[in-house]
Amino acid sequence: MAAGGDHGSPDSYRSPLASRYASPEMCFVFSDRYKFRTWRQLWLWLAEAEQTLGLPITDEQIQEMKSNLENIDFKMAAEEEKRLRHDVMAHVHTFGHCCPKAAGIIHLGATSCYVGDNTDLIILRNALDLLLPKLARVISRLADFAKERASLPTLGFTHFQPAQLTTVGKRCCLWIQDLCMDLQNLKRVRDDLRFRGVKGTTGTQASFLQLFEGDDHKVEQLDKMVTEKAGFKRAFIITGQTYTRKVDIEVLSVLASLGASVHKICTDIRLLANLKEMEEPFEKQQIGSSAMPYKRNPMRSERCCSLARHLMTLVMDPLQTASVQWFERTLDDSANRRICLAEAFLTADTILNTLQNISEGLVVYPKVIERRIRQELPFMATENIIMAMVKAGGSRQDCHEKIRVLSQQAASVVKQEGGDNDLIERIQVDAYFSPIHSQLDHLLDPSSFTGRASQQVQRFLEEEVYPLLKPYESVMKVKAELCL
């Protein structure tokens, strides 16, 4: 049975990233139509530049190519590739079939990587351009969430054990800070992308030097003109047959890092959902379990974690691919890159769409948070109580021993009897502590235990987050809708 299948058929496997999760716009960027249309555009740009620099290419040939950029006979191309065992030459023939007058000058002087690699770089750039505003929107939604809850005390956790208090907004800023680093890295790697350009079979530009009869300047002009037509500021000066596969490492490393950030955020949300302090959106008709109707599973956060793990592992592909590119190139890269580049971007696209949807509907339960604080705060307040007693004339050592005994009794009630923490009640009825009984409410005010959390939130948002989001103001209103 021949390899390949009808990918629109229910009898043929289709990647869930495309069929179930990723956005239509990201799927289109990695589609065959987008790819092969870009090949034709690159052939047109090459012909236009070659004509401008004096090669015998007519206006009629150029116009014929322009008129057929979208006229792609995919069936013919597939048949040609089956016959020739070469995808680029299959599309040269297919393009030439609908451009008979231009057929002889299509791909003039070029090698397969002229269309293959340059198209990949265009796709990487455009895919990054799709991700950047999506990530900015996630940051914006979380920034709104953090600002609104900047002063809401909550129990902090280290080692997932109760620690000092923080605020809900401050905790959210930990998430935002990681995503801001990801946004900066995505922008950097996007701006650092260079075009492969017009380089020939081993990167020496020998074929173009021959076409222009040894004119170095025209060869350099050709490279520059096509690079500018493709919208790049610069091209690699040095290439082998391909652009260095280190570029793929750079791009997928940034995406993998984004995956790590999203995994951490969504894990926190899942843990908070278990504590009943916070939940992701839950639709009115949504079913959490087929057997347990009360369940409210954090399905979206779980999906993000599941896909983020996949995204983090994909960076190993370009690392290994770059390491086995012998001399000017081997074909070890080809099949692998067809999979890992598309999957990385479709996965990143999915987790950003999902995280935006989550961040637009996060639900906080202040009463649950308050109750958990009441359970733990008495123990945390013991040092403040000791200091207040010393100020009232008591002995630190005597007070410490009193607190120690009462704390152990209260802990026994919590752990052995399943009761509430009654340390404060014990202190309130103990005559030894009568000098500070009137101060206990103040000493137990949760806001006095959150330090500068709310001020940190305000400063972080104003100095770091809002300036970073400013270039994306025009796209901030787009909502994230999930079908599944």
Rank of each mutant, 00 (worst) to 15 (best):
A3W: 10
G4L: 15
G5I: 14
G5H: 07
S9E: 12
R20H: 00
P24R: 13
P24G: 11
M26R: 02
F28V: 07
S31T: 12
S31W: 02
W39N: 07
W39M: 13
W45Y: 15
W45N: 14
E48I: 08
T52P: 07
G54F: 08
P56F: 08
P56K: 12
I57C: 06
E60S: 13
Q61L: 08
N68T: 09
I72L: 12
I72Q: 10
D73L: 06
E81L: 01
R83E: 13
L84M: 08
L84C: 06
A90R: 00
H93C: 15
T94A: 15
T94Y: 08
G96Y: 05
H97A: 11
C99W: 00
K101Y: 09
A103Y: 04
I105W: 03
A110I: 05
A110R: 01
C113G: 14
Y114V: 02
D120L: 08
D120S: 06
L128E: 07
L128W: 03
L130S: 13
L132C: 15
K134G: 14
K134H: 14
A146P: 01
K147T: 12
A150G: 12
P153H: 00
L155T: 01
H159V: 01
A163R: 00
A163T: 02
T166Q: 11
R171P: 04
W175F: 00
I176H: 03
C180W: 04
C180L: 13
R190W: 09
R190D: 07
V198A: 13
G200V: 00
G203S: 02
G203W: 00
T204N: 11
G214C: 10
V219G: 05
Q221V: 10
Q221M: 15
D223V: 02
K224I: 09
M225L: 14
K229D: 03
I237E: 09
I238H: 07
T244P: 15
T244F: 03
R245F: 00
K246V: 03
V247S: 11
L255G: 04
S257K: 07
S257N: 09
A260G: 12
K264T: 03
T267K: 03
D268T: 09
L272W: 09
L272K: 06
K276A: 05
M278G: 04
E279F: 06
F282G: 13
Q286F: 00
I287S: 06
G288K: 03
S289R: 00
Y294I: 01
P298L: 03
S306F: 01
S306D: 03
A308G: 13
L311F: 03
V315A: 07
T321A: 02
A322R: 03
S323L: 03
T330H: 03
T330K: 03
R337E: 00
I339E: 03
L341T: 15
A344Q: 05
F345M: 11
L352C: 08
T354R: 02
G361R: 15
L362T: 10
P378Y: 04
M380K: 06
A381T: 07
N384S: 14
K391Q: 14
K391W: 06
R396E: 02
C399I: 12
E401H: 15
I403P: 02
I403E: 06
R404S: 10
Q408C: 13
A410I: 02
V413Q: 15
E417F: 11
Q428V: 09
Q439T: 08
D441A: 11
L443Q: 02
L443D: 01
L443N: 04
L444E: 03
P446G: 06
S447M: 15
F449P: 03
G451E: 04
R452V: 10
R459F: 10
F460A: 03
E463Q: 12
E463I: 10
E463M: 07
Y466P: 07
P467F: 07
P467Q: 09
P467A: 11
L469R: 04
E481K: 14
L482Q: 15
L484P: 07
